[in-house]
Write a protein that binds this DNA or RNA. Structure first.
Lengths: 228, 228
DNA sequence: CGCAGTCTTGAATCTCCTCAAAAGGCGTGG
DNA sequence: CCACGCCTTTTGAGGAGATTCAAGACTGCG
């Protein structure tokens, strides 16, 4: 459950170096590539600017006092984040792979920011339904479909997208996203694999074999894909 | 689990009368008082206008194919809702008591709509953390605090708010909100009552006795109150 | 008074978690 | 190149928390 290391009380007052230096090195409208495991901003600290995710993967998360973590959303290419109001960040944002980011300046197209906000809300609501009412297997099936949609490799053949994608999330990340444990996530993924709905040789390269059956399990009616 | 009656497939094409007539009777900027159990708009149907909740209580929910329901947010006085984008409503909205609504027109103050949207998102994210990572007792404690904050009766004494509020949600509504069952909700509420943290004579009039202990259990750090 | 609905409580069951250990991948260094 | 350690993933066994099923209590209403 305690999958990340929380900054101790002292660190809560003074943000860790990694977060600090990252913000300082990035001027307005500047773009930068950030290594995996980088915290872009910390929950509870002075609000950061907004970002556009050009390429890579970012997790938005919250943490309870005792360290239990909930990943609230997983972002792929094209998504905007860090657009909150108020003095402090309501969530943390962390890269899950090498990620190309662009800092947003104030005069961002207002319609685009609004669309991004609506997307965040729709996804958060769909995720609440997943967390509150789906079984472990349904959760994992939903996650696979969502990630395939966000991270599907654009293939040469114009006809259809490849059904293979890189799983930037570890089993622990998936667990924190889906409200499960590492073991349960692993069991469900392997159950889907044994049933022939998905396939993976390496734990982080996943192929969707039977998308229809997966959608049947996931009850994906409520799950919006950012790619529309 | 199946706490509401879903419209059958035919009803999905043609919205039920109740929703229909409600929308027709409400012209722009008009206000109206709606009885409990009224569906203001249905998930999946043509998008409704936005509303301001003057007084009362509204639940925003989503339903899976087999009828499992998840209440995504509970709204009290002052909240705005129905501000989604796209052709269809991502959620349903239903009154939980006699509710005074005002339909929003197009030239709504843009900043106010944006604030409302940000509040919806922050609450949805906090609720995801609740659903994914809190125990049943923690969930119920969080819910009690949230509802007390939204529905606390403004007392005559200017010093502090009354700690008694009307619970417009039934045990079944609470269950659908917190990702639990009716029985578990009842057990947790009575456990909090026996422990002397809350009190209720009637099931729907709740008093907070020990707010500090309740917050301790709820881990309310992440839970934003709409009243700020 | 009796009925219908909600709420409460108990007992049995089940899903998922916890704990434990083994297997696999990857980089380091001898 | 292989041994070693570290980390992630997988798999199994047992246990805990929440659900399911069932029955009784309370409330409002005809």
């Amino acid at each position: 459950m305690l999958n990340i290391v929380m900054p101790d009380e002292a660190a809560r007052i003074v943000p860790p170096d990694i977060s600090n230096s990252f913000a300082r090195n990035l001027r307005s409208n500047q773009s930068k590539i950030v290594p995996p495991g980088t915290t872009i901003y910390f929950e509870g600290f002075r609000r950061s600017p907004g970002y556009r995710l050009i390429d890579g993967c970012v997790a938005i998360s919250q943490v309870l006092r005792d360290g239990r973590r909930q990943i609230v959303d997983v972002l792929g290419p094209g998504r905007l984040f860090g657009l909150s109001q108020g003095d402090s960040n309501p969530c943390s944002a962390e890269t899950l792979t090498y990620t190309h980011l662009e800092q947003l300046d104030e005069d961002l197209d207002h319609n685009e920011a609004e669309r991004a906000l609506h997307l965040m809300l729709r996804r958060a609501q769909a995720h609440a339904t997943l967390l509150g009412r789906k079984t472990a297997l349904e959760k994992v099936a939903s996650a696979v479909l969502d990630l395939a949609c966000q991270f599907a490799r654009t293939s040469k053949s114009p006809k259809r997208k490849r059904l293979t994608f890189t799983l930037y999330l570890t089993r622990a990340d998936l667990a924190d996203w889906l409200g499960l444990t590492v073991e349960t996530v692993s069991r469900c993924l392997n159950q889907l694999k044994r049933s022939g709905l998905i396939d993976f040789r390496h734990p982080e390269i996943v192929t969707i074999v039977d998308k229809g059956a997966l959608m049947e399990i996931a009850d994906a009616s409520a799950n919006p894909c950012p790619a529309e």
